[in-house]
């Protein structure tokens, strides 16, 4: 099953490489990875999506917790949560396709954020399924470049991941 694990870790050089290294060293898989500092500059939040059965996920969270730089973590998929990813896509937009791209973007509540005579750059946010669907819709028109941030997420309700 797919899991989204969010980690608060020391904002130290080397911390990220330890987390990433752990996944390759122990043969765990990383689907997406996203990391940035939090409101507390001494902490970074890293969100990783991974696929594995319960045994593997248990091992992943235990080994992550064991890393000295990891302060706290949560498996968001254990409860209700919000999952978002941002994607920028350059799509061919010539002739009739110009309207088609714009219309589809509207349907997906995506925005065209840059324009040239030949292409549109579209920005879209949502969960991974929505982004995949948008890419599928664009594929016949001609995708030139895709930049995805990887999944970020947060628990619904009063639950808070903090120190």
């Amino acid at each position: 099953m797919r899991h989204i694990i969010s980690i608060l870790m020391e904002n130290e050089p080397g911390a990220l490489s330890r987390v990433v290294g752990l996944f390759s060293q122990r043969n765990f898989n990383i689907e997406t990875l996203n990391v940035a500092p939090t409101e507390d500059p001494s902490l970074s939040r890293l969100t990783v999506t991974t696929i594995g059965d319960d045994r593997v996920i248990e091992q992943i969270t235990k080994h992550l917790n064991k890393l000295i730089d990891v302060v706290k973590l949560v498996d968001l998929t254990e409860g209700n949560h919000i999952e978002r990813e941002l994607m920028l896509v350059k799509v061919k937009a010539i002739g009739a396709a110009r309207d088609e791209v714009k219309r589809t973007a509207d349907i997906f509540r995506a925005q065209v954020v840059d324009v040239t005579p030949n292409l549109y750059t579209v920005q879209i946010t949502g969960d991974a399924v929505k982004l995949d669907a948008f890419l599928q819709a664009m594929a016949p028109i001609g995708i030139l470049e895709v930049a995805r941030t990887g999944v970020s997420g947060i628990a619904r309700g009063d639950k808070v991941l903090s120190l």
Binding site: R55, E58, Q59, K62, H63, N65, K66
Partner: peptide, 11 residues
């Protein structure tokens, strides 16, 4: 003492 050792290879 190491939680990651528990149930690693044998439950």
């Amino acid at each position: 003492v190491d939680p990651s050792s528990v149930s690693k290879t044998v439950r």
